[in-house]
Amino acid sequence: MAKILLVEDEVSIRGFLKINLMRNDFEVIEAGTGEDGIKMALQDKPDVAVLDVMLPGIDGFQVCNELRAKYPDLGIIMLTAKGQDMDKIMGLEYGADDYIVKPFNPLEVVLRIKAILRRIENKNEDNRDKLINGPFIIDLYSQKITKNGQEIDLTPKEYLIMKTFIENPNKAFSRDELLNSVWGYNYFGDPKIIDVNIRRLRSKIEDDASSPSYIQTVWGIGYRWKE
Rank of each mutant, 00 (worst) to 15 (best):
F16V: 09
F16C: 05
L17D: 02
I19M: 13
I19Y: 12
N20C: 09
N20M: 10
M22A: 13
M22S: 12
M22T: 12
E27I: 08
I29K: 10
T33D: 06
G34S: 06
G34P: 00
G34N: 02
I38T: 02
I38N: 00
I38F: 00
K39R: 13
K39C: 09
M40F: 07
L42F: 09
D44Y: 14
D44N: 15
K45V: 15
P46L: 02
V48L: 06
A49L: 04
V50T: 08
L51N: 03
L51V: 07
L51M: 14
V53P: 01
L55I: 03
P56R: 07
I58W: 01
I58K: 10
I58R: 06
D59V: 05
Q62S: 12
Q62T: 11
Q62M: 10
C64Y: 00
Y71I: 06
D73K: 13
D73A: 13
L74Y: 02
G75Q: 03
G75M: 03
I76H: 04
I76S: 04
I76N: 01
I76W: 01
I77A: 00
T80S: 13
T80P: 01
T80Q: 07
A81H: 11
K82V: 07
Q84I: 05
Q84Y: 11
Q84N: 14
D85P: 02
M86R: 15
D87G: 03
K88F: 07
K88L: 09
I89H: 06
I89F: 08
L92A: 01
E93L: 07
G95Y: 00
G95M: 02
A96E: 01
Y99A: 00
I100C: 11
I100K: 12
I100Q: 10
V101M: 14
V101D: 03
K102P: 07
F104V: 09
N105F: 10
P106I: 06
P106L: 09
P106H: 09
L107A: 14
L107W: 07
L107E: 15
E108T: 15
E108V: 14
V109S: 04
A115V: 02
I116Q: 08
L117N: 06
L117K: 05
R118C: 02
R119M: 07
I120G: 01
K123F: 09
K123T: 13
N124H: 10
N124L: 12
D129E: 08
K130N: 08
I132K: 15
I132P: 05
